[in-house]
Design a protein around this nucleic acid. Structure first.
Lengths: 195, 195
DNA sequence: AGAAGCTACTGAACTATTTGAATAGGTGTG
DNA sequence: CACACCTATTCAAATAGTTCAGTAGCTTCT
């Protein structure tokens, strides 16, 4: 049900085709509402049918024709209503990796370590990408300037949430690696390393 | 597909009924793999059919009869295999609230503030519950002792991830409230407050 | 005494999401 | 020139997840 509003919110940035949206979702919105291209195309169809967005067909020279969608007044209004309502659903995190961590005690420590290191690398990669988006958003201003004066601060603040999340993720991975180190030689009464 | 392993991992704590699991999922596992009771009952049926868990019926005096499920050797093995494999799916966060934040710039600031304050309260509440679970897990030991010596550290570490996540959440909310304060009187050239 | 709420589970219908593939022309690499 | 990958979209099928309701006896509050 919320994909609808995620799409409307994405179109606040300006008109976009399904394909372009699927790229946007991949980098920024996916942070809090992931969607596959198929979902987006279907949702765009539905929203256009409901008159919340409108489409215009744009033929291109060396590319397939695309359909650009933009918010209608009705769409903008419904999005505004939604955004002012109290939130129904709490955050839902689905994380296969944390299931593995929950069950890690029956597993070869080297395999666990590999998993955690992979996750850490992935978090740091995402962080680097977010930072680049952030530079683009700030466009030379400082954070303070931007947050005080910009027309829209929503996108910056959600990005900041993503950054904090991935930073925390990486930190957690480092903590786990330390813990794994501390358990390599199970501590005897004197805590003497074995070899 | 991962609900399967989430259930198996939950049963590492010992045998449980569907109903009990639905409570466990509500407080701890829901942190990284939410599931409704209906999903759990269906999944338990499937897992029992596949021989990964086994059921025993326990009649009770003043309550309906319940079926307690526990891991079989086959189940334990499949869970171990899964937990050692590289992770296929990256973390998926679905957060209606952040969609609202993305779109917040067209909305009455008082309504936004109310939303953020609600979210902050909710994060702090969850944090308090997590801290209680943490005390119970540590059972008088310090974190260091527990992490070095306990048989299982997985549950503690995933809990720590949940704690870090909610802490970050609350911090982010506070940041947003500060930003909203800074924008109440849009800064003119001289930055003179208007009220 | 009546209402609400908990334990414990089941069923059916519905909506959402994922996966795989197909179409069709264009660009870039070796 | 073969091959892989990009733009841009659509279709079909399968799997996953949500919602609503119902059964049935018990406890707790008013």
């Amino acid at each position: 049900m919320s994909l609808k509003y995620a799409v409307l919110a994405a179109l606040l940035e300006g008109e976009a085709s399904g394909y372009e949206l699927s790229k946007v979702f991949d980098v920024s919105l996916a942070n809090f509402w992931p969607a596959t291209p198929q979902q987006l195309y279907r949702e765009l169809e539905r929203l256009a049918g409901d008159g919340l967005i409108e489409a215009r067909t744009v033929p291109q020279e060396r590319r397939p024709t695309k359909r650009l969608f933009s918010l209608t007044e009705a769409g903008r209004e419904q999005l505004g209503d939604f955004a002012a309502e109290p939130t129904r659903r709490p955050t839902a995190v689905r994380d296969e990796f944390l299931i593995k961590m929950q069950a890690m005690d029956g597993v070869d420590p080297a395999a666990v370590r590999a998993l955690v290191e992979e996750r850490r690398a992935w978090a740091l990669g995402k962080l680097a990408r977010y930072e680049r988006v952030r530079e683009r958003l700030l466009d030379g201003r400082t954070e303070q300037e931007h947050l005080r004066e910009a027309d829209r601060v929503g996108p910056y603040l959600t990005l900041a949430a993503g950054i904090a999340f991935e930073r925390e993720n990486a930190r957690w991975c480092e903590h786990v690696l330390t813990v794994l180190d501390g358990r390599r030689t199970p501590a005897g009464p004197a805590g003497q390393p074995l070899g």
